[in-house]
């Protein structure tokens, strides 16, 4: 049967965990396109995990609508066998079957998931050196992450949501995971939502980017559009400052006499030519720099390059 990736639409969605709490999601409108890898970004408490739980039908909003399914056939995912079978959410916590061997968790998924790929699961278990004879609660954080990844990828769900589920992996295994994810995605197209704080590492995978902030959508657009929102200039500090002028600076790095600045907004043709003439390298903005800028960074709003 031909895969039909799931998309999702949220309309005016609000969710509070307690009556007096600030909303985890606040009148949120968002569309997740089917068949693409979407980066779901936000600072701690931005609402990423809540959004993931709503998409998986694990919770209900107190207001608004959540719809999930193939293009043109979106449905409420709460207590919906159709969408539940096609959605796989893996959280950092793992949600494994504790008190019994990790292989029992995999066996349970294999029993329930119609698209479970046992060969892929076995390959991933070997790739990550996962000891499936050990109870999940006795596994290291990295091994628990690996178990979550095996579940997330081998389920081949039309909507796969990985919510910080690979943060426990060491760098080598994370890059192995990115490679496997891309290869499997290319072979079996589906919708993948990746939530991560390791933006610099994973942004190359994103086709769409969603940035949440305090329960609201700050940005939702294609990764190409995001990268076109700004420009990065690299070269001698004086030349960079001259070309940057009074444009808002999203990020700045300096190594000796070489400076790299990320500027908000695209360059005009004349500015671009001037930058090239000055011998500066011109590139797009990184998702991470834009994310830091949009979500307020670690401190005050960035100044212009001239002010620096």
């Amino acid at each position: 049967m031909t895969p039909q990736p799931f998309g999702a639409r949220l309309e005016g969605v609000t969710l509070r965990y307690r009556r007096d709490d600030a909303p985890a999601l606040d009148n949120l409108d968002l569309t997740i396109r089917p068949g693409v890898i979407t980066g779901l970004l936000g600072r701690n408490g931005a609402g990423k995990s809540t959004l993931a739980a709503l998409l998986a039908g694990w919770r209900r909003p107190i207001a608004g609508r959540v719809l999930v399914g193939p293009a043109g056939a979106l449905e409420d995912p709460f207590e919906n066998t159709w969408t539940a079978t096609g959605t796989q959410l893996v959280r950092e916590s793992g949600d494994h079957w504790e008190g019994t061997a990790a292989r029992d968790t995999l066996a349970f998924h294999a029993e329930v998931r119609p698209s479970w790929d046992a060969d892929l699961a076995e390959h991933l278990v070997g790739l990550f050196g996962l000891d499936v004879g050990t109870h999940p609660e006795r596994l290291s954080r990295g091994q628990r992450s690996a178990l979550g990844i095996v579940v997330g990828l081998a389920s081949r769900a039309p909507l796969t949501i990985l919510d910080e589920s690979y943060l426990g992996l060491d760098a080598a295994h994370r890059y192995a995971f990115y490679d496997v994810l891309l290869a499997d995605y290319a072979e079996h197209p589906r919708t993948i939502v990746l939530s991560s704080h390791l933006i610099g590492e994973v942004e190359r995978l994103f086709e769409d980017v969603v940035i949440l902030d305090r329960g609201r959508v700050l940005l939702a657009e294609s990764a190409d559009d995001v990268r076109g929102r700004g420009v990065t200039l690299t070269g001698p500090a004086a030349d960079v400052a001259r070309v940057a002028g009074d444009r808002p600076v999203l990020a700045r790095q300096q190594l000796g006499s070489t400076t790299q600045v990320t500027l908000d907004g695209a360059l005009s043709a004349d500015e671009h030519a001037a930058a090239r003439a000055a011998g500066l390298d011109v590139g797009g903005v990184s998702v991470q720099d834009l994310f830091v800028h949009l979500t307020g960074g670690a401190g005050a709003a960035p100044a212009t390059e001239e002010e620096r």
Binding site: T2, P70, W82, T85, P114, S115, R156
Partner: peptide
């Protein structure tokens, strides 16, 4: 192996859902 996703016809969907349940 291919991903088994729901067919769009009502009958196929009902069959799929029943089997999944």
């Amino acid at each position: 192996m291919t991903t088994t996703t729901p067919d769009r016809t009502a009958t196929a969907r009902a069959t799929f859902v029943a089997a999944a349940e």
